[in-house]
Design a protein around this nucleic acid. Structure first.
Lengths: 102, 102
DNA sequence: AAAGACTAGTTTGCGCCACAAACTAGTTTA
DNA sequence: TAAACTAGTTTGTGGCGCAAACTAGTCTTT
């Protein structure tokens, strides 16, 4: 079996970007996570996290819910079903590459 | 065991880029490959392949040897030992992410 | 009571870079 | 001898990731 390497060029850029890949990987494993938690877990700055979350939300891969923690704003993030499937597809996609070269 | 997701942000961009990832994956499995072969195998245009190869060479991950096939130029590409190790490290790096979320 | 620091984000601006298109240089064909 | 082909390289530009600056509300200190 030979890999069709061309397929690999179509890796979902939206997920492939390291920052978003990490966010998606985290959200894949938890029920939900808030902004501050993600910030610390990923090491991303507020600005970067904010814009990456916005892109993932726009793609329908995550859902953002703005609530309050007492008097302070609190943004809850959770992966949608679409996002979960997209992440699994991405993972499977990359695995092809690695199986071929192992 | 919890993954340090911050490490994953440091994914080697040079290899992470899909076009170069595919090139590296191919060169990992073969002794050497020429420009035209890589072009067809990857589906990259001449221009893109050329510039990606240049970057990989600059990084010391591949070696380019310009020879002739009869009267026509022929560029042979092969992965260096450094490149091989870098590719393996990249793969291991990504696997961490996938193991955590499987 | 008002200045300064803190929480929780969003917006802006710059710099890099992947990609397509244009170009180079030699060769074969009609 | 002009057009088409081989085998690439160079150029231009649009998009995007990142850091820094900004917004908006809250707490603290004096």
């Amino acid at each position: 079996m030979t890999t069709d390497y061309r397929l690999l060029l179509e890796l979902e850029r939206l997920i492939h970007e390291p920052a978003r890949l990490v966010i998606m990987a985290i959200l894949y494993t938890v029920e939900s996570a808030d902004f501050v938690y993600l910030m610390h877990e990923t090491g991303l700055t507020q600005g970067n996290l904010s814009s990456h979350l916005a892109k993932l939300e726009e793609a329908g891969y995550i859902r953002l819910e703005k609530t309050f923690n007492g008097k302070f704003p609190r943004t809850l993030c959770q992966q949608t079903e679409v996002g979960r499937l997209a992440f699994e597809a991405y993972r499977a996609h990359l695995r092809l590459l690695f199986e071929e070269s192992s």
